[in-house]
Design a protein around this nucleic acid. Structure first.
Lengths: 204, 204
DNA sequence: TTTATTGGATAGTGACACTCCCCATTATTG
DNA sequence: CAATAATGGGGAGTGTCACTATCCAATAAA
């Protein structure tokens, strides 16, 4: 198909497709002459993926590029899956405060989670908990944190239980799934809050 | 304290504080003369809240303003808490597709969640699920969705179990807590995935 | 009295994700 | 075969966002 057709199929403006081509987010079509190229289903799929990651997943195009690159270079076994997946989504490490990193590390260890020593997600968790406490939210008794971690464990279990055998497909599912379903979880949380609140505070 | 002191206390540049004042995110200080005003702890707290919501919570300043306005006008009972809290965080409703809204509604109803008929979060959920399925993620057997909802319920329970009696404090905790802990949950999810993956795919 | 700081206002910055326009070349259509 | 349309390539422009810089006259502090 030609670019206008690709635009039609995906609902993305031709100018934007050209932009994606220029930026290397979309692989070039097959040239049929100096001013013409053909695109196929792989292009349409890629465009839909770009839009899903950036719109629904809220990723910047720079991050989308990272994810795409990672997906193009899948691991050889599912054992290396998470490494590859999380490389793709790795946070750019900010100014990690050692004190809070240590706090997060201790929590993770106490949970019995086997996490690499230099895992940047631990720094990130430290920063995030710092922000939460700084904003005056009480986590003192640790109960909510433990409840969240329990919930995270069951979610992770569900995430991994349906992973396909093929490493490339597995990678795609984990990466894209995680990005796109984080917002779903946030929404479910709010809905569940509403439901609980209705029964809990009915009397007031 | 004067503005430079406020800047020092919060780590936010004077120019930025002036910007927040202009934008109405920060309430004016007490004028002591035509070119001087005094700020107090309430200003420092507000500034920290703005930074927490926008940096850690990823909210735009427009959204921060909404949240702040809502916090300044707390409900009278905890029964109206969630309404007020979620008004503050209400998504701007996009182009809701009725088909997907219905799908989301059906899921919510089947769960036995009591959610208002016109709740925009249901539209949002529909859109998000649409995006997930469009991206080729398989939810067909419904298992992951059910697992997420279970997790969301326990999280919501933890969220609401520690809510203070005072409506203003309760509102603050629910709103700020939700905004700031969504990213924490996402991080915990990734860490839990890593832990699970280590044991699950060890042999490969 | 000199120097620094303040509130107030206007304008400028850099990142981001497009969007517009131009051109010389093909393709397509009548 | 001629007129019209579409294409690839590329530069420049747009609008939004969250600041940041600069200027000013008016205090405040040393």
């Amino acid at each position: 198909m030609r670019i206008s057709q690709l635009s039609h199929e995906t609902g993305v403006a031709v100018a934007t497709l050209k932009f994606y081509l220029r930026e290397g987010l979309l692989h070039p079509g097959q040239q049929t002459s100096r001013t013409q190229a053909m695109y196929d289903e792989s292009h349409a799929e890629r465009v839909r993926l770009i839009r899903a990651l950036s719109e629904a997943g809220g990723l910047s195009l720079a991050r989308v590029r990272q994810v795409l690159d990672a997906l193009d270079d899948p691991p050889t076994s599912r054992h290396h899956l998470l490494g590859a997946a999380q490389d793709a989504l790795r946070p750019e490490d900010a100014h990690a405060d050692p004190e809070w990193t240590a706090f997060a590390r201790e929590f993770v260890d106490q949970r019995g989670w086997q996490i690499r020593d230099d895992e940047p997600l631990v720094d990130l968790l430290g920063e995030q908990l710092h922000a939460v406490l700084d904003a005056g939210i009480n986590l003192a008794d640790g109960a909510p944190l433990a409840a969240w971690a329990d919930a995270a464990e069951s979610i992770a279990e569900a995430d991994l239980s349906t992973v396909p055998d093929d490493p490339a497909a597995a990678l795609r599912q984990v990466v894209v799934g995680t990005v796109l379903t984080d917002p779903v979880l946030a929404t479910l949380r709010r809905l569940a809050q509403q439901h609980r609140s209705a029964t809990l505070f009915e009397s007031e």
